[in-house]
């Protein structure tokens, strides 16, 4: 916050201001990128949840008589298969809808696992400092020295690729940003007077970390989490594209792009449809992350 705004801010506080939840909700609606991102993700989430009822066909059902049917906007397209079929005659729209489940699931679970690891390490390092910090920093440097895609590829080829392996691997690899953010945010809070007040009361350590520290660094962590969801979704697509991720016949968007790559020049829609879906989702998540960052940054655009 700039010096010039502090006086007015204190003057405002002398009046009854609404609770922070109310203010958060209001500024969410005022923030365009946040609203758009939230809208897209919410609709994709509903689609993914209701996939069995929304999909017009079984995504695994092969229909060799109707292979490579183009989408409805082509002359030869039909409304039976709105987005056409792939080389095995499976309905592309249904595969896309079920693919959203895989992408969102992997994105969320990876962010959850890595968030748990990274936040724990970061909060401990930031709160205790000294040797704990040295150990965490060492782990962090080691982790940052490893190229994610290569390590994930190597491990997946050793263990064998599957949705579970991809999720676990990415979860164990993508915790670095959580750790960095949690560590520096906690360092700033460690000497906050309310933390000291809790220490002086004899509050047990878990209480201080979970109730005093964590809620106040959550904003920054949520921003990181959104970015990591997007990152994980892209990495899953990459690994699946390279054949080391989700295995066929699962309808992963990355796998759909991989399977379609030989037809790219004559039937470009086999690539552009899953590619476009991936683009939309990642964009929406990044918009959401951007919006959240504006909200959580004091003195940000929405002050």
């Amino acid at each position: 916050m700039t010096d010039s705004l502090t006086p007015s801010a204190t003057a405002l506080q002398s009046q009854l201001t609404p609770a922070w939840q109310t203010r958060l909700w209001r500024s969410t609606l005022n923030n365009r990128s946040l609203a758009i991102g939230l809208l897209i993700i919410a609709s994709l989430g509903i689609v993914a949840l209701l996939a069995p009822w929304l999909a017009p066909h079984d995504p695994y059902l092969q229909d060799t008589a109707n292979r490579m049917v183009p989408p409805f906007w082509h002359d030869t397209g039909s409304w039976t298969h709105p987005l056409g079929t792939d080389r095995l005659g499976r309905d592309y729209l249904s595969r896309l809808i079920f693919g959203a489940r895989i992408s969102l699931f992997i994105g969320l679970v990876v962010a959850l696992i890595s968030g748990l690891i990274g936040t724990t390490l970061g909060v401990l390092a930031g709160y205790f400092g000294g040797r704990v910090d040295a150990v965490v920093s060492y782990l962090l440097t080691t982790r940052l020295a490893m190229p994610v895609v290569l390590v994930a590829l190597a491990m997946a080829s050793l263990i064998g690729g599957s949705m579970l392996t991809v999720t676990l691997l990415l979860g164990l690899l993508l915790w670095d940003r959580f750790a960095v953010v949690a560590r520096s945010a906690t360092q700033q809070l460690r000497d906050a007077e309310y933390v000291q007040a809790a220490q002086a009361l004899g509050c047990p350590l878990p209480y201080i970390l979970l109730r005093e520290v964590l809620p106040n660094i959550a904003g920054a962590l949520i921003v990181v989490a959104t970015l990591e969801v997007a990152n994980a979704i892209l990495l899953e697509a990459t690994l699946s594209f390279l054949g080391m991720g989700v295995q066929p016949p699962s309808p992963s968007w990355g796998l759909m792009i991989a399977e379609g790559k030989t037809y790219m020049f004559f039937q470009p829609w086999v690539i552009t449809i899953p590619g476009g879906a991936l683009f939309m989702l990642v964009l929406a998540i990044n918009l959401l992350g951007d919006g959240l960052r504006d909200l959580s940054a004091p003195g940000g655009r929405n002050e």
């Binding site: 700039t2 010039s4 705004l5 006086p7 003057a11 002398s14």
Partner: peptide, 18 residues
Amino acid sequence: ESGCGKSMTSLALMGLLP
């Protein structure tokens, strides 16, 4: 006291307001 506008006045004179 804080919030009485004294700093705002000075910034306005200097042309340094947001």
